[in-house]
Write a protein that binds this DNA or RNA. Structure first.
Lengths: 210, 210
DNA sequence: ACCGTCATGTAATCGGTTACATGATTCT
DNA sequence: AGAATCATGTAACCGATTACATGACGGT
């Protein structure tokens, strides 16, 4: 009965669950370390899944009957997980169900900027720091993209390069947006042109209010 | 001693902690509900902080000595939290410390797309769904932005409108990127032009592999 | 007076994060 | 052979999410 409830509780699968299910469905039987490597090379660039998760999640899914596990006898005693029919079904069901939740965009730099007026002097430094970071990330994506898309690669089925491409394309667009944003902030907060135009708001420290 | 350790453990403050500290530092003594409303109107659009968090976190911060709490005697028995000197200090320290962690971009639609080849028919429907969602969100931001920026508002200090503007500007840029991305995906996956150009990869279901 | 929504809070569960730990490989 | 890094895993804590619950307020 516990098993029944568990196997029916499709609703309680997390994004991590579907990531694991999807990877194993596509790549075939995998060890947690396989998952880790694949994730690092693709979606992990902007959605982090700590490796401990990728070791724990397959165990959960196995309990739910969505995966099976076999363990190497000797050597590293690796765990190899295989997807079951139920697992494929859960995955299909999820793919067919539209996701209406909106994107979580969690950025510490943005949070800092949100409070930057509390210490006006830091607004610029935050912007410059973030600008540098996002420019670097953008460059990394662009380098990876040109390297990843070998013209006329006649590989019959999608390779990991393909998936790098798919996921990184969005990352690329996001980083472009981020660079644009932080560049604008940096300019706006730059005190170098002491123009007569009034600032949008006073620059006194607001951190202590009466 | 526990208290000492706790108050020194600045490192273990989470983004939520700084959000709460920052809001109370800027807006003055606040109830959890005040926090909730403010967050909903601003950063909550793309970084969700469930209201239960905003009730629990102030209590934690109070234990750490970063806030003080006073409770209404009668009526709704609201809890009013005020920031302490230590709290302001922790906030300042955080603002001065650059955040090097990169953005978390958690999007269920992207995750689905990542596995869309497992069910080729769904790739397009996912793209269309996401495109509609992001267009709607983009429209909402743009509507909010024009409404929120009253020319020549001579308010002496930044109002909540100002902060809506600051946070939503990034949201706006992100949504533009997202719309661009999903539009491209939708076009690429659209089978309407049955051109002779070979597809980048075969469209057979990969969900069962030998 | 009633009803719906706003406002306010608590409890329990559980996933995610951090920290720890150690056996294989590879390089010098 | 030793060092460094890769590979592999476990354990524990704790924050975040979900669910539950109820009192105040405004409108009809």
């Amino acid at each position: 009965m516990t098993a029944v409830r568990a196997s029916l509780a499709t609703a309680q699968l997390t994004p991590t669950s579907y990531l694991v299910l999807g990877l194993i469905a596509r790549e075939g039987p995998s060890t947690p370390y396989d998952l880790k490597r694949h994730v690092t090379a693709t979606i992990g660039h902007f959605w982090s899944f700590p490796h401990a998760l990728l070791y724990k999640e397959p165990a959960r899914l196995t309990e739910l009957g969505l995966l099976t596990e076999e363990r190497e006898a000797g050597g590293r005693r690796r765990r190899l997980f295989t997807i079951t029919t139920a697992g494929r079904q859960a995955l299909r069901a999820w793919l067919a169900r539209p996701s209406r939740e909106s994107t979580e965009l969690r950025d510490l730099g943005l949070l800092q900027l949100f409070f930057a007026d509390l210490e006006p002097a830091t607004a610029r430094s935050i912007a410059k720091e973030q600008l540098a970071l996002h420019r670097a990330q953008l460059a990394a994506y662009e380098a990876g993209r040109t390297a990843a898309a070998p013209r006329g690669s006649s590989s019959p089925s999608p390779t990991i390069e393909h998936w790098r491409g798919v996921t990184l394309r969005m990352g690329l667009l996001y980083e472009r947006a981020a660079v644009e944003f932080w560049a604008a902030v940096a300019v706006r907060e730059d005190p170098s042109p002491p123009s007569t135009r009034a600032r949008s708001h006073s620059k006194v420290s607001l951190i202590r209010k009466p």
